[in-house]
């Protein structure tokens, strides 16, 4: 119990920090924040009223407090490009981002575990060398270039899969099953691009963890009892080596999110990343800040979930902390 209270309390300064970073960046941006409410029909007194409502006539710390209060209540201003409330634009894009991220996350974990186990079981033999080489390659290839090459191979040359979008826009909205099928087709290439970008680091760590676990006395004991090597790997070593991966996943989350955003942009996947990058192009600061704040919160939530998973997988955490 004490652990969870402290864990939640610990995220409060983080959220304040994120609000602060967004606020500072917004103040650095050219123009006045009230610009995002500008309307040609307004006169000077309307503008003054807006500045007053936004607390822009107050000292900077008061402005920060007012801004934080609005941001926490979900009021992130309005897009200067479309006039849409930022929170609306973000919540429209969130499902696509979650679909892409969670699918790649599951695929990443499955491949990481498979490669890690093979690599550790065949340590220093050729499968291990090959997998290590692949992980080095995965760390070195720019994610956006993987996306370009996937489009070049599977869309341009082979014409197997669509290169961009969420689903075929010519489909009627009543054809639910066709839309789901089309979405899955559109999902394949972005998921591959995200996955290649993220398995590299995790696989290397999992291999290390696996090799460490395989040197433990209880594995030797299992071996002495005549248990088959595959069963030792899959039943005795797998879970213990997987524990650190949960923590690591939480740490790698910012990198994964950044990678996923570039992938969204390449494949015109209508998620937060595409929204944010396009906002950067159109100098749409409210949307930019909103997307930054929202992604930071997503990472925070992801880290929190990683901790929940960890304490579920390793109950010692709760006991030690309290």
């Amino acid at each position: 119990m004490g652990y969870w209270v402290r864990r939640i309390l610990y995220s409060i300064p983080l959220i304040i920090g994120m609000l602060f970073v967004s606020f500072v960046l917004m103040r650095l941006a050219p123009g006045d924040p009230s610009n995002m409410f500008l309307d040609p029909r307004m006169n000077a007194s309307d503008l003054l009223q807006i500045r007053k409502n936004l607390a822009l006539d107050q000292p900077i710390p008061v402005q920060f407090l007012a801004w934080s209060k609005r941001a926490i209540c979900g009021d992130l201003g309005f897009s200067t490009a479309t006039g849409q409330p930022v929170i609306q634009a973000i919540s429209d894009r969130l499902p696509a981002t979650l679909l892409l991220s969670l699918t790649s996350l599951v695929l990443t974990l499955v491949i990481t575990f498979l490669l890690g186990i093979i690599s550790a079981a065949k340590a220093t033999k050729w499968p291990d060398m090959l997998i290590t080489f692949i992980t080095f390659l995965g760390m070195s290839i720019p994610t956006f270039w993987i996306g370009l090459m996937l489009i070049l191979i599977f869309s341009v040359t082979l014409n197997w899969l669509p290169a961009s979008g969420f689903y075929d826009p010519t489909l009627d909205s009543s054809e639910k099953i066709a839309i789901i099928g089309s979405t899955i087709q559109h999902l394949i290439l972005p998921v591959i691009a995200c996955t290649i970008g993220s398995i590299a680091g995790l696989t290397r760590y999992y291999r290390f963890g696996m090799i460490n676990v395989l040197q433990q006395p209880y594995i030797l004991a299992a071996r002495a009892r005549g248990i088959s090597p595959w069963r030792i790997l899959s039943r005795h070593a797998f879970k213990n080596a997987a524990l650190p991966i949960i923590t690591l996943l939480g740490m790698e989350l910012p990198g994964l999110v950044s990678g996923a955003y570039i992938v969204e942009y390449i494949f015109a996947w209508p998620g937060l990343g595409q929204l944010g990058i396009n906002a950067a192009f159109s100098r749409d600061y409210p949307v930019l800040m909103g997307t930054l704040f929202m992604s930071s919160v997503l990472i925070l939530v992801g880290n929190f979930l990683a901790d929940v998973m960890y304490s579920w997988a390793d109950p010692r955490i709760n006991r030690n902390a309290s």
Partner: peptide, 17 residues
Amino acid sequence: FIMGLPTLFIILIIQVI
């Protein structure tokens, strides 16, 4: 805290600003 931020995105914003 900084390591937990989506750094690439912040770089993007600073470049825009």
